[in-house]
Design a protein around this nucleic acid. Sequence first.
DNA 1: CTGTTAGCGCATTCAC
DNA 2: GTGAATGCGCTAACAG
Lengths: 355, 355
Amino acid sequence: MSETDRTAPATLHDVAREAGVSLATASRSLNGSTRKVNESYRQRVLEAAARLNYSPNLSAQAVARGTTTTVALLVADIADPYFSSIASGVVAEADRERLIVTMAATERDPERELELVRQLRGQRPRVIILAGSRPTSDPTGGALADELTAYERAGGRVVLISRNELDFRTVLLDNRAGAEALARELTRIGYRRFAVVTAGEGLRTAADRLEGFRAGLAEGGGRLDETDILREAFTRDGGYAGTRRLIERGLGDIELVFAANDVMAVGALSAIRDAGLTPGRDLAVAGFDDIPTVRDVTPPLTTVRVPLEALGRRALRLALDGDAADAAAAGPDVDSAAGVVTTEVVLRESTPARG
Amino acid sequence: MSETDRTAPATLHDVAREAGVSLATASRSLNGSTRKVNESYRQRVLEAAARLNYSPNLSAQAVARGTTTTVALLVADIADPYFSSIASGVVAEADRERLIVTMAATERDPERELELVRQLRGQRPRVIILAGSRPTSDPTGGALADELTAYERAGGRVVLISRNELDFRTVLLDNRAGAEALARELTRIGYRRFAVVTAGEGLRTAADRLEGFRAGLAEGGGRLDETDILREAFTRDGGYAGTRRLIERGLGDIELVFAANDVMAVGALSAIRDAGLTPGRDLAVAGFDDIPTVRDVTPPLTTVRVPLEALGRRALRLALDGDAADAAAAGPDVDSAAGVVTTEVVLRESTPARG
DNA sequence: CTGTTAGCGCATTCAC
DNA sequence: GTGAATGCGCTAACAG
């Protein structure tokens, strides 16, 4: 198609002319608030719009209205199943509200994250959602917080998912209770001696899960020594490395390794197998999150189900409804009283019942 | 934060006033084209902008310039690793060009897809990328094509990934050659009798892969009977169902089942296991795509690597550079001569060498 | 209820 | 080189 036969999209002005009405009437008929326009006019405008294949220019609407229909979503890595599941939920909920989602990836780089937030602000999104935790120590020296605060002062809404180092609305996950329930279940089916592979200190999510796990073990009579807590990156490779270290050091009578998230657990499975052992039989494994992958690995992974899509949906609801969301948003995955997304232990074959 | 202390974002006007220059000068200093502005003024404007934490209103820029910096991406399912990998590539490339990506999910519903394209048009995106194939028979009666054509006539660019039923720019994948190479390799390592689980007819991608696989078998002396081609949905469950049917019917001397994509292959693994057989030993499995998951399943899956991220990146390049992309975009994953994204056979343990 | 008009924030022509 | 003025497409007072 050559440049010359380019046909500019129909404008509202075109529609008004085609329908023989004023701009204002056309606007009111198509996008207007409470319709106060004569039905016959309305019809003519609608028909004219259809004939011209009119599509309102959202940028122009945004400028005129002083507000957009955009939601900005920042994740660490779009291809990571944890984040793509959350993104899926955000997009689904946004769609219900007829909001448009723009997405960007921080690649786990705080500088980049800051840069992206700055760029995103140009869109004047109604909401900015940040998913994924980051180190406690902020190398940008609070610049991100400043940026987000300025954004909120301008009328925007910030929501954090699974990161709490900043003082904004946050989607709460009962990491502690989930891990506690998991530990209880594992002791119930016969496990006694545990190891943990988790992230380095300073990640609240990981810390909560460890704390909950400890509490559950205390109730159930399980044992976890400090020296059996291995700290590595919060990634698949981290899980692999930690588990490998554990095995090389000698398992002793450790029966099960709890990985603080599923990607670490998947790494643990590989490390076990690469060491010539059989996961589940020689060393049981449990994870946290229930990303889709873990049903397809062998053995299928015991984990704590986190409704990731619901997390994303809830993040948007929280932004839109404000604190009212705590009461309103309910739904099966949300404990409406506490306003916390609930989790559920899922026992699978990576932790067969013991003796 | 109460509504009352809301502080509107600084406007260009504010910056100009703060710097003591005119609107035009401020505009030229900050976003202007070939700078024709006195360096001292320029500095003052930049400083004023920083002081006010100015962020250009992209909507206003879009209206004034008559063009946006937006790319719209439509996928079937954001949480699907195939699509999220592609999306990751699109976002990465868009970021390099300082373009913003908006994403939506069709959920494999053609009506919904059409509706989304209509909505997306309102953004006046520079590019619309559609990923994921769809049935040949178009239930919307060509309405999607009409919509996209109108969009292109208005100056937009449409790029299709892995779907060719419409007459737009398309990211080419040598599905045929990839499957052919796979079949050749499999015969080379000793396989002779094959079955295939694939999508129903009418999906070009699936058809090409089957055709290529057949050609490769012909070269290598492998055998595939028509009755051993099972057609199901192009999903994990489809792969499961097809493989299950195959097993129930009696495997005969079939040694390997080729699934037309990896999600089907993962389903095949489960079906084999659920039938009490051992994948790899009792029945080998090969897939296509090399989604991240297949390294973590057991046994790791033999497949044809498709550089999914590169696919996404290339889609955007194709939109931006036009036909020049064929020559330009090159990169390791693109055969610059043919302008086709190249694939590569990856042998893993799901297809151990035979005899 | 309808049409006229004045902006929204910005880029860009046009005079100076 | 700089600034004043016009317009982008649309909404929202404001009059009629």
